[in-house]
Write a protein that binds this DNA or RNA. Structure first.
Lengths: 191, 191
DNA sequence: GGGTGCATGTAATGGGTTACATGATTCT
DNA sequence: AGAATCATGTAACCCATTACATGCACCC
């Protein structure tokens, strides 16, 4: 009874383990929860929920509303909770990440060094902004979910973001210096 | 004359900027060059090359061989080099990375802490191995391409790997400790 | 005889995003 | 009047991996 379907389906199960929700709710919840390392679009969520319901992993209840479309509330079944647990135990399947910045940088010689500098500077700004958000989110979590047993796990994922963004910032700074040196050599020639 | 097609096509152009190659060569070159942050399968490479040839961005020459299939050697045209340059200048499009480890960790409360520990330990081992390889590759590059003008750019991409893998290792170690604390609390209860 | 390397390619399948379609309510 | 929010869903499209199909040569 493998009940196939990739990590996307499991992410839906996971979010529903936090309480009954509609597809719309799920979409809205993502940026505040797993948004730093996962994303789902409507095109995945709605068909995904339908499929999970067909497999008996979630239950659907329709809530009438006046003046608005019905809300379709989904909640985990016992089977769904088991399926989630099984998947959580499986080893993580490693993928080769695709990093367009590095791809462009690798071929940076084809283009003036200033072009690469701009790309790296954009990356730097992005991660500085991320770091600010991580800090804010961590504080908000501790305020609003201070004694939720899930909290330590949520903080671990945030901490990952902090570690890697800090490292990326440092790399950007070093790389900008190196690119600066290359730029000078280009312009100066022997003298 | 946009000549659409995502970053995959551009990666092919980039690799061909290093010299004429066959699809087979490209596949073999990837692990030694952009493999740490990019991948291409045959299912992408062969149709991709065909399409680039149709767009006049690469030129195909067939080399007869005895006892082996013909080699189809592709080389950049002037147009192809321009197209590559244009793309390199475009800002990097940021994607939300998908990280299955973090997804599992986020829902770690659904499962004994030992499960999460194993996932994190696997990640730790992976990045320690990567760090060893980065070091070896950097040395090999400096030995074999000591005065290649591309070298500084290649080293920057390696340096990125070092920075982020180091950060990941540190995070893994901290997270393992934290998970250990959670484990004890679970078992011990109040006493 | 059987595995590995050389070398090409296609087809089936799975994943995922974007844009579209609908339509009432509430805020500006 | 027009935009944003609530709320559902589908269809077209793009991207990517995997497995398959072919076939000779060379080494063990």
């Amino acid at each position: 009874m493998a009940t196939e379907g990739g990590a996307t389906q499991k992410a839906l199960l996971g979010l529903l383990s936090m309480g009954p929700m509609s597809g719309y709710d799920i979409r809205a919840l993502i940026p505040e929860s797993i948004g730093h390392f996962w994303s789902e679009s409507y095109g995945q969520i709605y068909p995904g929920l339908k499929r999970l319901a067909g497999d008996g992993l979630v239950e659907k209840k329709t809530e009438r509303q006046k003046g608005r479309p019905d809300r379709h509330l989904y909640s985990l079944t016992e089977e769904g909770r088991e399926e989630l647990g099984e998947w959580l135990r499986l080893p993580v399947v490693g993928e080769v990440p695709r990093n367009e910045l590095l791809l462009k940088l690798f071929f940076g010689m084809q283009v003036p060094a200033s072009v690469s500098r701009e790309h790296v500077e954009a990356e730097l700004a992005k991660h500085r902004a991320l770091l600010a958000r991580y800090g804010a989110v961590a504080k908000a979590l501790e305020r609003e979910h201070g004694n939720d047993p899930d909290l330590p796990y949520w903080l671990m994922t945030l901490s990952f973001g902090r570690h890697t963004s800090n490292a990326t910032v440092k790399w950007c700074e070093e790389t900008l210096q190196e690119l600066g040196r290359l730029q000078k050599k280009d312009k100066g020639g022997r003298r």
